[in-house]
Design a protein around this nucleic acid. Structure first.
Lengths: 112, 112
DNA sequence: TTGACAAGTATAGGTTGCCTATATATAATT
DNA sequence: AATTATATATAGGCAACCTATACTTGTCAA
């Protein structure tokens, strides 16, 4: 991530799971998608992503399958029911904390 | 902090500086104030706070003075100009990242 | 046609941020 | 008198993320 990433450390898992809720993706694709959708606010590093993906597979949050059709090795990740549950929990927690931060630092407020 | 604190690690400094922008406080007072204003979402631990305060003093973000009037030792912390600048930067970054997260995970976002 | 670069995945090692556990001392409560 | 709340402090540890590096294959320009 860019600049002062520490402000949002811990949210990486949530963001990855959210991307995979919409469609199966391979690692490099996730990095690009995150960068685009966040307008460069997030620049996830490969060295952060791949170990994270491996651990999420181990925790049964993701399933992986390989596709070499294009000649390049691509490992696609698919969100499981377990992963979906974790995503829901993390998202809820995020909104809760986000609202609490806003109550303290003021400014904009997040719905629901 | 409560439960899955990792989602917001890195925001502690910002929150502390924000409290001290409003008035000088001593450590224990900050913990209570944070707990109250966040409706128990944040439960900062003493073992987290005091080392953080010491490091902020070292970075010239805070100044400290002691008050033993009440019989109890209380170290009051005061926000410096440097601290104010850091607070402004962290707050800006937080809003930026927060908006980026909302763009990815969805939910409403009010104001800038 | 080969040399450089982008795409794609992977791991080791280090830093940071926060936590738990523990320690100390005094005031208030019981 | 004993316990609890107030108040500050430090050591040790874990988890999350980063940097640096490594490897392979495809593409494009010189």
């Amino acid at each position: 991530m860019a600049t002062d990433s520490s402000l949002f450390s811990g949210s990486m898992t949530m963001l990855i799971l959210k991307l995979l809720e919409q469609k199966d993706m391979y690692g490099y694709e996730m990095i690009d998608t995150l960068t685009q959708r966040s307008n460069n606010a997030f620049e996830m590093k490969a060295g952060t992503l791949y170990p994270l993906l491996h651990s999420l597979v181990q925790k049964k949050c993701l399933e992986v399958y390989q596709d070499d059709a294009s000649g390049k090795m691509r490992k696609y990740y698919h969100l499981t029911a377990v992963g979906q549950k974790i995503l829901k929990e993390k998202t809820q927690t995020w909104h809760e904390y986000s609202k609490a931060v806003v109550r303290i630092i003021g400014g904009e407020c997040y719905g629901n």
